[in-house]
Design a protein around this nucleic acid. Structure first.
Lengths: 150, 150
DNA sequence: CCTGGATCTGGAATTGTTCTAAGTCTTGAC
DNA sequence: GTCAAGACTTAGAACAATTCCAGATCCAGG
């Protein structure tokens, strides 16, 4: 219910200007949700973001978390990550990269794009206009792979 | 739920033997659902398969369609295709391939893998054990691209 | 021709997400 | 400052895709 006032200037500048540019206000909830995503970059679901955000803002609601995440996505600070039909995960790493999904632990890992590897656009039949592409890797993450070897 | 991956009793085998190999019966519903998928390979959703299947088996239920699709997936005749968090689509093209999703019309198109292009496994950091990978292309399909150019 | 297990069915339940309506806060005009 | 307009947050309802469930039905083997 009660809302915090404007935070100290200098804190979360990128966020503030990005939001402003998109015509959005840097509310306490948005700032905190963004901080949650920056603090632990493990591709949390909306539910997980909600639980983490609640620790500091106990009254925050799920709807607000969805709203905030949507705002962050819209102003280009956060990316949605989808795998199969699982819950949407949120990723604050905006560099070009792909994802590896561990079949054992379900974790998602950033795979930074190898600049040497050519983009696969030439493999497309004529007529297709590619805007972007994404590679989803599946298998075992290092930890789970090591565990299986024993 | 544990899903048994069937190691192919023989490439390009009939529905019946594939099902039998997985310990499943070739029921009328399963055969018809499979026929529906072969007849129009446009990556239909379960709902679309249901509507098409109903034309020949009016009493078939949605639950049965899901069951049949699951059976076909389990015995390696059909693949699930996911894009963002949209409904699961079903693909009877079992050759290795990727998918192109048109941002304009929402269609899904098979992109056959270029055998020349090296697999991207070397781009993975050490420790990761890749089992498979999938490339999702986004952009405009030839038809929608042509329409935009006018 | 019985019987047990596989299968089919409609409907309820579940999950993740979006919508809605009402209340709260912030901004800008005066 | 004061006030209205609009942005934002909230709880809960609604929603879509899917899975679960329990009863009915089918069918192969004895």
């Amino acid at each position: 219910m009660k809302r915090k006032t404007t935070p100290a200037p200098g804190e979360g500048d990128a966020l503030e200007s990005r939001l402003a540019y998109a015509g959005l206000r840097p509310t306490a909830q948005r700032q905190h949700v963004y901080r949650v995503l920056l603090r632990k970059r493990d591709h949390p679901t909306a539910e997980e973001v909600f639980l983490r955000a609640k620790q500091e803002i106990p009254d925050i609601s799920m709807a607000t978390v969805y709203n905030c995440l949507d705002a962050l996505v819209r102003c280009g600070l956060v990316k949605q990550v989808h795998h199969d039909r699982g819950a949407t995960r949120y990723c604050s790493n905006m560099a070009e990269h792909h994802h590896f999904y561990c079949d054992a632990c379900g974790g998602a890992f950033d795979i930074t794009t190898d600049p040497e590897a050519g983009h696969p656009e030439m493999t497309l039949p004529p007529g297709f206009q590619m805007r972007r592409y994404e590679i989803a890797f599946n298998g075992l993450c290092p930890q789970c792979a090591a565990r299986k070897h024993r």
